[in-house]
Simulated assay, not measured.
Amino acid sequence: MSVLTLASAPEEATALEGAEAHHARLAGELAGRVKLLLTAVDRDPSAAEKIHAGLVAFCDRSLLPHAAAEEAALYPVAHGMPEARLLIESLIGEHRRLTALVDALRAAPGPAGAAADARALQVLFEEHVAKENGLVLPLLAMTPEISLAALLADMHHRLANDTGNRGAQEDQDTEEGPDMREAQIEETGGCGGGCGCGGAEQTAVPELDVTEVPHALRHATVFGALDAVPAGTAMVLVAPHDPVPLLAQIEQRSPGAFAVEYLERGPETWRLRLSHR
């Protein structure tokens, strides 16, 4: 079915596509960070600690503000539609569960203890955005009296203001926020030989297998995983084909940041070591 059949006007179709793409980026980055955490817990506990901290920082920086902006900008309008009222109340309940899982991740004594909550967070968020993409957003887009484009613009404005306010607060605060901690982890790099950057056996490098990741989320999942790889460490990517277009996107996104080494070249599986310089 064409997106245009689900929208009352071309600009509404464009807004719908943009919202779905944004959801894909969020879900992909979350999936990448979670997958990397789960493999690092078994392969390299030292790297897992940094990945765990980065996952919490991502949730505080992107996931939770996104949920709050939805509740402020999108949900009130959808809740006013009789056919969507119960669904919106259910989605608000899911936001509370997402927040509780992030709090559990933050309070976990270590990466191993956080693994189950991280996986639960990923599953819940993917189910959550599937309902929004399949039900809420098309309903808003196809209703002539409602402008999804305007609602999304309001949501993005709220997100921008939230980001600015949090940045100003961090400048005034003497304590380090989660984003600052993640930045320092990436700046300091180094591993003492236990992260897979040359001082340990290759088996210590976290591995991300995207062969079963939905194609729409695959590139975003890799980007999310790479964002969780501190400088001076590496990640092994397992793909069902030679990921040449993906490598070009990685280079365009972060010029010169990652060195690529092929460990296996098909015919069914490609394995590449991506080293963060």
Rank of each mutant, 00 (worst) to 15 (best):
A220M: 04
A40D: 10
A67T: 09
D154E: 14
R25C: 05
L151T: 10
P144R: 12
E49A: 13
I88G: 10
V244M: 02
V210P: 12
H95V: 00
A204Y: 12
D242K: 08
N133C: 03
V229R: 05
R277Y: 07
K50I: 01
E261F: 03
E175C: 11
L64C: 01
H23Q: 14
L217E: 10
H156D: 13
V56Q: 07
A130R: 13
G18N: 11
L86P: 02
E71D: 15
G196V: 02
S90L: 03
Q184S: 01
A40W: 04
E187C: 07
A7D: 05
G199T: 01
S46V: 15
H23T: 11
G54L: 03
V222D: 10
M142F: 01
A104M: 03
E261V: 11
R43Q: 14
L38I: 02
F125T: 02
P76I: 12
L63N: 13
A48N: 12
A104H: 10
A27F: 07
T174V: 09
L272I: 15
L137I: 00
A7T: 09
E126P: 06
T221H: 10
L237I: 01
R96G: 14
L30S: 04
K50P: 00
G54K: 12
T203K: 12
A72N: 05
A228E: 07
L151E: 12
V3F: 14
